[in-house]
Design a protein around this nucleic acid. Structure first.
Length: 506
DNA sequence: GTAGGGTTAG
């Protein structure tokens, strides 16, 4: 990092020299302004080296502000050196260091500092607990902080500390605890609402996320672009086009700036809700296309079977100076998989490491294996799975098992099933698949054997289901479901669709 | 000088 910065050509132009600094008090704000203008660490350090020569600038206040800037540059080592120079660090200085450690994967150091702070008789303020939570590496530690907040009467109802606790619980997947806190909060703001909504969405509890969003609207709480990103993600995954469209209109109406993340969420929503043309329309006019936006577009084209177009966008993004990341390659490889572009897929997987320096992860191999499977190259897929540099997981073996069910390949299916019985012993779908393969080969004894395993292990069969939203109502259907009032018409339509698909594939 | 975000293979 330092080397990169050192080699860049940034120079400080208007830096007053220390010898000219006859009136340090009046010059002090200028110094801080100079530091604030520095965009690179090396620049900052040069400026600081000049300023620090004046004795006044060794004051605790100055040093604390310096730490704050250094934490902004993620230079924790230097920040700590400065911190250690402070004779009597204030709560602000401690907070800043704890924040620095917490946001740079050095949580334990942050917690240690918090303990030292209390030993020195300093009281936490409303910034301390949110930062301390950032430094927690697990639910257990966070619960510890939670109890500190509860005991500290000044903050047990304070919005920042409680909101941070909510997002903390959500980030560790404990939406239940987050919700308990949320429901009991005396006051909530955008961040509180967005935090809990995002928590539900991350846990794939999209419906509950949308419900909370509706409540948020009814309560007249301000909505910002971060709220909308989560809501778009929920509607994308529910296929709830109307909610997504509502968000789009809201963005236009309120003239909310389409930043790359919001833009990507919008493109992704249209793609997942079946409107790839609309997704492309939004994509085209986005003022600022970051790597997220390209990824969403390529992924969208991939899932709609526009493999060639997806690959074209992949090259186009590079011509536009955007560097592909690991997600881009997942999208590109899935494009190859869904469009049968085996040769291209091969080249891309090799090129990832060679030309882009990105080591393929298990997800990349997952796409690659899926591509081989869909192309009917089951033996090749099996070879890749057992020779990959990492331990294959249930998804990889599951992909192969699925393909074996399509091709009625008993031998490889049994190989996959053997691993899946260990990796996913309670996944009912796997047993159903292998049993179907045996049935296709009329191996009724084996079918009975699998059925017995299911019964003995008390594996409940989870019926397949799907969701669709029409006129703001989300309808849920189970396999063979006949409960819907329009059931008959729905099945009629399904038959018609099936006929059309068959005609297409001929 | 507080807290929250998207895309990811069966």
């Amino acid at each position: 990092m330092l080397e990169i910065l050192a080699s860049s050509n940034h120079h400080i132009t208007h830096l007053p020299s220390a010898s000219n600094d006859s009136k340090p008090i009046s010059n002090k704000p200028n110094h801080l302004q100079i530091l604030k203008k520095c965009t690179h660490l090396i620049q900052f350090k040069q400026a600081h080296a000049q300023i620090i020569k004046t004795p006044l600038h060794q004051s605790d206040t100055y040093l604390s502000k310096l730490i704050n800037s250094l934490v902004g540059f993620s230079d924790l080592i230097y920040a700590r050196q400065v911190f250690d120079q402070i004779t009597e660090p204030s709560t602000f200085a401690f907070n800043t260091m704890i924040r620095g450690y917490g946001t740079n994967d050095l949580g334990p150091e942050g917690i240690e500092l918090y303990i030292r702070m209390r030993h020195q008789g300093l009281n936490p303020d409303n910034f301390t607990y949110p930062f301390l939570l950032k430094a927690c590496s697990g639910l257990k530690q966070g619960k510890g902080v939670h109890s500190l907040v509860v005991k500290d009467k000044r903050f047990s109802s304070e919005i920042h500390s409680l909101t941070s606790l909510i997002t903390f619980y959500c980030s560790f997947g404990d939406v239940g605890s987050a919700r308990l806190l949320f429901d009991r909060m005396p006051q909530r703001n955008v961040v509180t609402w967005t935090g809990i909504i995002t928590g539900y969405v991350k846990q794939k509890r999209y419906k509950e996320g949308i419900e909370l969003f509706n409540q948020m609207k009814n309560n007249g709480v301000e909505i910002n672009e971060l709220t909308l990103v989560s809501v778009l993600s929920a509607s994308a995954n529910l296929g709830a086009l109307e909610i997504g469209q509502w968000v789009h209109e809201y963005i236009d109406q309120k003239r909310i700036l389409l930043n790359p993340k919001l833009g990507a969420a919008l493109v992704d929503m249209y793609a997942k809700c079946g409107h790839i043309d609309k997704a492309y329309q939004v994509f085209k006019v986005l003022p600022c296309k970051g790597v997220y936006v390209w990824n969403a577009m390529i992924g969208g084209l991939a899932m709609h079977g526009y493999g060639i177009e997806a690959i074209e966008r992949f090259w186009e993004m590079q011509r536009n100076g955007i560097k592909p990341d690991r997600i881009t390659f997942i999208a590109v490889l899935s494009a190859c998989s869904h469009s049968g572009l085996v040769e291209t897929g091969n080249e891309i997987l090799l090129s990832m490491r060679k030309d882009f320096g990105i080591e393929p992860s298990i997800k990349h191999y997952g796409c690659f294996v899926d591509m081989l499977c869909r192309a009917g190259l089951l033996n090749e897929a099996y070879e890749v799975i057992i020779n990959m540099p990492m331990e294959p997981n249930a998804v990889l073996w599951g992909t192969l098992l699925n393909a074996c069910a399509v091709a009625a390949n008993v031998e490889l299916a049994e190989a996959a099933m053997q691993r899946l019985m260990v990796l996913e012993p309670f996944n009912d779908g796997n047993y159903v698949l292998i049993s179907n393969i045996y049935a296709a080969k009329e191996r009724w004894n084996d079918v009975g054997r699998i059925r017995k395993i299911l019964k003995d292990r008390e594996i409940s069969r989870n019926p397949g289901h799907s969701l669709i939203q029409v006129d703001n109502i989300v309808h849920e259907f189970l396999v063979g479901d006949g409960r819907h009032p329009c059931s008959e018409q729905i099945y009629d339509m399904l038959e018609k669709v099936a006929i059309i698909i068959k005609e297409w594939s001929l």
